[in-house]
Design a protein around this nucleic acid. Structure first.
Lengths: 359, 359
DNA sequence: AGGAACCGTGGGAGCGCTCTCACTCCGTGG
DNA sequence: CCACGGAGTGAGAGCGCTCCCACGGTTCCT
């Protein structure tokens, strides 16, 4: 016989937490009834339920998730998958808002959010293993680059999945939420054309990101609508420095442009720098627009006209949709696309020099 | 009788994932041996191990975490607790870096990061329940306000916990990592004094946050060191607008100040605005410093001198320390404090007007 | 040569929970 | 009056895993 208590190697000192058995004993019912009472089953008499409730409070009973999960095959947790997040990408307020939004959708639920960031290809294999290992009930994937084949891989596992941002591979029945990047691009073109600019150019984002491609497509459509030529297009990598370099080239090749649409505010900052460095003014010589309505858009030396999109709303929706699909598998909700709006600031306003511009 | 197969309510269609039993069968060993091989136990013959490895690959075996967790009482996951995170706080790049850093510390481990954001008091009770429920092996708490009593509550549960940012309640044996806010404040005072400013004021952060208090203490110590008077102190809430208001008041009450230290870059932006609005120039009339070396410090209309702190390094360390403490409970590591550095930019440089300032 | 000390192995118990099934106790209808 | 069904309950199996223990086979020491 073993005399020493058979404790596992890592055990929090204090008293062991009460089990369902203890609870049942305290409540004077069977384990089964206690379980039913706890899970809100409807085959429990009011008295039994009350007794259990009291015992829960007395004992400070907390169900063991592992045990529950073992039999139900549900984990009450979902994953937020962020493929290849270099720090720079992570710093984007976008992620903060996405995380906050999902968390918002999850409150009132006991579902927890597990963060899965897979940097290298090696890592992403592990991530995929984790996901198909049944360790989460569903996943929200922040879709980014054309390269990552998350859409296909995940849909194969049958794990309920929602994409934030339209994935490349829309062919399959993937569900996603997104903002209307195309509409936003169109708004930008319409606005710049509307204030009388005629020689318009854009600093687009990377060609392997749907958001960038969609904004560009919308921009070009908007130009067509306004009867303007398609104008020069240069691509940059959504960073300030990258955009500055691209804009320098643009200004050299097309010295006559009078309006530029940068596909992100951070890039617009770079464009602003390049425009100033070339001796031109904003908005005097060149009207400039950004996208995202990032905080910096308001604080830039010339506050930037930009396009807002309710990322928070989108993230909350994504969370809610995932919960729905977990609850009722097979229901493949339609993709949801949120509209965008234009926010006008000094960078596209002609007359008054920026002075008292407050958010 | 129910004729339909007795499946649990939510079951992924595909074939059920192989269990350890299946694995053992395929490898031609017992379940015990398979388990040992998988967990890297040392009592396994090379042949057996190889057979198991092969079977793992063949079957695509993934251990069931719930079952494992049930018996080991380990969950292979840790929590990142963010008390009362309003969206504004979340947008701070600080969190992005913290998350990235912790994730970095966790790779090469199969430990997962669970995000616990508790907004309301009600929420925080749930969070605490979750933590003491044994659902995670440890926690990293981003410490913020004096009010939240996380330090005490958690240390009572015995759950391994690391604080990021010195908690208020240092009395107990809490382990934390932090940056040297006091040293940073001192650096700021020394720098402004060093460039010849004599009438110095500070826009400090909220008095209920240790980071703010420490920076202020350091600042005041630095002034003393330099033989300067303690000068005016106004408090703001780490936001741009709040600081702008505070600075306006400051400039009214003390029109002769020639140097201001704002305890964050975002606040420095507000101060900058107020200084300009009062018709003064930076750095001509007033030398201005921020703190954090936030991205905006470089992109502001007058690039801001600031204090850098390696939050990434701190976060990685926090993750590593937590893993250590989980591995070897009882080892209470000493708090770690990372040093800070000054980054000089136009806002404290006298002669040349800001023009070609590049990061 | 005999025992101790090991090694690699397999059997079995049991972690805390849910869920099926059987059972009792009613009320209801034939 | 007895069969019947439903509501409330409890016993028991079993989810997939780890870990303790017992067992045969070496090797090493006495």
């Amino acid at each position: 016989m073993n005399t020493s208590p058979p404790r596992s190697l890592h055990q929090v000192p204090g008293r062991p937490s009460p089990t369902l058995e203890d609870l049942a004993l305290a409540a004077g019912v069977s384990r089964s009834t206690a379980s039913r009472a706890i899970n809100g089953g409807d085959r429990v008499s009011p008295e039994a339920r009350a007794a259990v409730d009291r015992a829960v409070a007395d004992l400070g009973y907390i169900p063991n998730r592992a045990a529950r999960s073992l039999v139900t095959r549900r984990t009450s947790s979902i994953a937020l998958v962020i493929p290849e997040p270099d720090v720079r990408v992570m710093m984007d307020p976008f992620f903060a808002v996405v995380i906050t939004g999902i968390t918002e959708a999850l409150r009132e639920t006991d579902v927890q959010l597990v963060l899965l960031m897979s940097r290298t290809g090696d890592d992403s294999a592990r991530t995929l293993r984790y996901l198909r290992g049944g360790h989460v009930d569903g996943a929200i994937v922040v879709s980014h680059h054309r390269a990552d084949s998350w859409a296909r891989s995940l849909s194969e596992t049958g794990l309920p999945t929602i994409f934030i941002g339209r994935p490349w591979d829309t062919a399959s029945d993937v569900t996603y939420v997104d903002t209307d990047n195309e509409g936003g691009g169109r708004l930008a073109a319409r606005h710049l054309a509307g204030i009388g600019r005629r020689r318009l150019a854009t600093v687009a984002g990377p060609a392997d990101m749907t958001a960038a491609v969609d904004r560009l497509r919308g921009w070009q459509a908007g130009l067509r609508d306004a009867g303007l030529p398609e104008g020069p297009v240069v691509h940059a990598d959504f960073t300030t420095d990258g955009a500055a370099a691209a804009a320098r080239q643009l200004l050299t090749d097309h010295p006559d442009v009078d309006g530029i649409f940068a596909a992100s505010d951070l890039m617009a900052l770079g464009v602003l720098e390049a425009v100033h460095a070339s001796g031109r003014t904003v908005p005097g010589d060149i009207a400039l627009m950004g996208y995202d309505n990032h905080a910096v858009a308001g604080t830039a030396s010339t506050p930037l006209t930009s396009i807002t999109q309710s990322i928070m709303q989108m993230a909350v929706r994504a969370g809610a949709m995932l919960l729905e699909e977990i609850e009722a598998p097979g229901s493949h909700p339609e993709p949801v696309v949120y509209s965008t709006e234009l926010v006008e600031r000094a960078s596209t306003m002609v007359a008054p020099r920026a002075s008292a511009v407050k958010a």
